[in-house]
Structure formats: C-alpha cells, structure tokens
Design a protein around this nucleic acid. Structure first.
Length: 428
RNA sequence: GUGGCCUUAGCUCAACCGGCAGAGCAGCGGACUGUGGAUCCGCAGGUUACGGGUUCGACCCCCGUAGGCCACCCCA
C-alpha cells in the first residue's frame, strides 16, 4: 500500500476526469463572456476575518467548516482557505475602488474552494465552483439575468431536469418584523420542538422552516409565511424578478422555505436542484442578493447579487444519468518507426509537425512497429506516420488508422497533408 | 461534529465453518525481426488499508487508527 495518499476529502483529478472539469470551465467562461461577466482570480486564502465578517460568524461555513491555516507565530495573521468566492470578490471590489467603475461590476471566478467538513460523495474539502457576482445594481432585472445564466449553464452542460427554486426573504425593512412573528409562533410551541430546533429558535429562526425533522412538518406548514409579510418594496421587487424570468422563459418554483440566514442577505434567494435526485438533497448551485455585504467589508452601501455553481456535483450528476462528461482530445497522429532503435528520425519528424502546430505523439519507446501501431490505435490517434527506408528518398508512409489505408507522402508535404486531413476529420 | 455500513493486485471482484491468497480487465513481453483494437501463450503485480489482540493456525473473530460510502447537521 502507498504510504502517501491525497488528503482526506481531496482527490486527484486524473486526466480523463479533469477533461470533464475543463469542459465545464469552458462552458462557464463562454457564458461569462456572453453575459458580460469578466473573469478574475482572487487568492485561495484570506484573512480569516474576511470570511467571518463576510459570511457570518454564526454560519456553519465559518463556525465548523472553515479551513483554517495555523499561524506561524504568535503575532502572525490568521488565515483561512476560501470556502466560496463572494467574500473575497467583494473584498477586492472595495480594495480596488471598483465603485468608481461603471456599475454594476460583473465578475466571475472559476476555481477550487475549501471546506473542512466531513467528506461524502459530491462533498469534498477541495471542490470546484463557478461563481458570478453582479455588484452595484439593485434592480430586479439583474436578478433574473443571473438566474438565467445559471440555468443556461446546466442546459449547455447537459444536466437534465434542473429546477430553479426561488424565494424572497425580505429586506432590512420587513424581515425583522417577520423574524419576530416567526419566533413567537415557534416559541409558542417550544414544548413540541426537538432539541436541535430549539437551539435554532435562538440562533437562526429562519432555519426552522428548512427542518427535515418529520415531527416539524405540521408545525412548519402552519407557520407564518415570509411571502405574507414582505414589505411593499420587496413585493414589488419579487414580482418584477418573476416577470423578468417569465420573459426570458426560465421556469421556477416558489419555495417559501428556501432561506438565507444572515442579515445582509436580502430579497432574492434561489437554488438549483435536479428533479427527482433521490437520496441526495445536495444543491447543484445556489445564490441570492446580498445587499449589505459590501458595506460590511468596509465599502459604501452597495446592492449585489450572485451565485455559485458546484462543478463536482454537476459532473457527478452527469455520470449518474449516464451522460457524456468529456473526452480527451487524442493526438492527430503518432509518429512510428519501422526500425525500433531509430528514435532520432521519429523525434525529428515529430518536431517538424509540431512546429506546424499539429498535435502528434512521437513513439519513442524502442518497440517493434506492430506494438507502436497497437498503442496508436488504442489512444484513438487518427493517423500514423511510419518512418522506414523510404525516408532516404524523402518519403514517409501516412496511414489512416480508421480506414486502414496508407500512402506514400513526401516529407516536405506531410504537415500540409495532415493539416488538411485534420480539418476534414473534425468536420466529417 | 453525530450515528451506521464498508476496505483483498492499478481497476472490478473471488477465496467453504478459522486451514497453502486467486481470476477477469489493464500493463509489459512472445507467437508476428516493416503494419494496429482479434486470438493464444508467458511475465510482472500482495505486509489481504494500518496497528494490536484471540488462536496450533486469521483475508475471515475482537479492539483501535486511517480512508471511503450512507444518513444527519449544512451546503457546492
């Protein structure tokens, strides 16, 4: 057994798996450009307080899942690996004075995130997200645009039956009153509450709505609904978001129990789930409006909205439904040689072709020709360039491995011939 | 962080009640010394996750640790 292995909750993404990630990242980048989001990168770690203040000290993400880096000395700063991108992006927005850019500032990040929780399928300590943030626009149209972009990602990735769950959680004008109502409602039934739910009543009453405890079902169903308590402005905003979604043909389900815990979250909250994903109630993505976060991290009051989509979970889902995840690009040609010992000629011809921009693998092992061709076939190379005695006259054999045909080609024409064949192969 | 199930070759899995650790696939080589996904033959690959215990004897039973999976908590 190997004495070293990938750390718990992490995994090596070997080439065939990584090809799936690369494909998803390609779709994400393509959508970012089409929707006017500019890609950037932020550090993989930040001062711990960026997350503590940006995400909230009372959240699970910070309280028990934050991947902390042990300080090197007593005095040194406390660091943590990023559990999501939003806090860091907003920190960057403030640091670089992006409020002076044309608003809204639309940014995306693609990359690994870290959470120190117990691993499970589709839940890793290092996982990959595509996240998008639109900072500086309070209007409902942006909400719809963000949601539509997320929805389109799943369509283009090939994930079937993705459902948009939507809710409005109110804002600083109306949520405090709702929270009070909720608290007194559940407080009135405190005797019936399980232990866990009783603790939530104090910390985060909204979470009670989310409870999966069967004993809570009736109580939750009869609980006062946020939708009945929204202030005028929130109602108008929510209605406008829905109208915009309808206009762009995004279907959604209003989910009154969908919540975001913290004070600076406001109004729009949404999650992406796969319909009928039995057993795993893991979201494929989610997001919402976080008016208030910019201010919390030292900027001026600025409205913002964004999402984070989990690439690992998308890939997992694609495998579950038996969809094509990705294929690696095979080499156009393999340069093989009749004389196993003559690696010089093979390397030289390969170098020539590569200089012309062609993707070729040189067979450098001193194996006999049959083996060389066997490997080339297995890796689905389109052609084999076979070098033998004819090289003395400046010729090589160009073999089409799929058709099984071959012909003599002057070395001087080889690159051109292959390039032409490549074109017809890719479009044929 | 809590509870449950699991761990044998690179991969998928066998091994009777506790009695000599095996096969298929993949890899490498040969049959075939200038022509490939087939076939046949061979080679290599193991401290049975790790550590301890019980036993004449442990892949098998017991304890611990690590890792994976499932359900919670929560989220991507």
């Amino acid at each position: 057994m190997p004495s070293f292995r990938a750390p718990r909750g992490t995994r090596d993404l070997l080439p065939d798996v990584w090809a799936g990630f690369a494909r998803l990242e390609g779709i994400a980048r393509s959508l970012s450009v089409r929707y006017g989001y500019r890609e950037m990168e932020i550090p993989l770690f930040e001062q711990t307080s960026v997350f503590e203040r940006g995400i909230g000290e009372a959240t699970d993400v910070v309280e028990k899942e934050l991947f902390r880096i042990a300080p090197r000395t007593e005095e040194s700063e406390s660091w943590a690996l990023r559990p999501e991108a939003t806090a860091g992006v907003v920190r960057a927005y403030v640091q670089h004075g992006m409020q002076t850019w044309p608003q809204p500032v639309k940014l995306t990040v693609v990359g690994p995130m870290f959470r120190y929780d117990r691993p499970q399928a589709g839940r890793y300590r290092q996982f990959y997200q595509w996240s998008a943030e639109a900072i500086g626009d309070a209007g409902p149209a942006v909400d719809a645009e963000v949601i539509e972009m997320g929805r389109r990602f799943y369509v283009e990735a090939g994930v079937p039956d993705v459902q948009v769950l939507l809710n409005s959680i109110g804002d600083s004008a109306c949520r405090p009153a709702y929270l009070a109502t909720l608290k007194s409602y559940f407080g009135g039934h405190e005797a019936e509450l399980p232990e866990l739910e009783r603790r939530r009543l104090e910390l985060n009453p909204l979470r009670l709505l989310d409870s999966k405890d069967p004993a809570m079902k009736a109580l939750v169903a009869a609980a006062p609904k946020i939708s009945d308590c929204l202030c005028e402005a929130c109602q108008v905003h929510f209605a406008a978001v829905r109208a915009h979604l309808d206009a762009v043909g995004v279907e959604y389900r209003i989910e009154p129990t969908l919540v975001r815990g913290l004070d600076y979250y406001a109004r729009t909250a949404f999650e992406f789930y796969r319909r009928g994903a039995e057993g795993q109630q893991q979201a494929l993505g989610g997001g919402g409006r976080y008016d208030g976060l910019v201010e919390l991290l030292g900027g001026r009051p600025t409205p913002a909205i964004g999402f984070a989509l989990g690439l690992d979970r998308v890939l997992l889902t694609l495998e579950e439904v038996g969809a094509e995840t990705a294929h690696e690009t095979p080499p156009l040609a393999v340069v093989a040689g009749a004389d196993p010992a003559d690696t010089v000629s093979r390397l030289r011809v390969a170098s020539l072709l590569r200089a012309e921009g062609l993707s070729v693998r040189a067979e450098l092992a001193t194996r006999k020709l049959g083996r060389q061709l066997e490997t080339a076939s297995k890796e689905h190379a389109h052609f084999a360039v076979i070098i033998g005695d004819e090289l003395a006259e400046g010729n090589v054999q160009l073999k089409d491995l799929e058709a099984g045909t071959q012909r003599l080609v002057p070395l001087a024409d080889l690159a051109r011939e292959l390039a032409r064949a490549a074109k017809s192969h890719h479009h044929g």
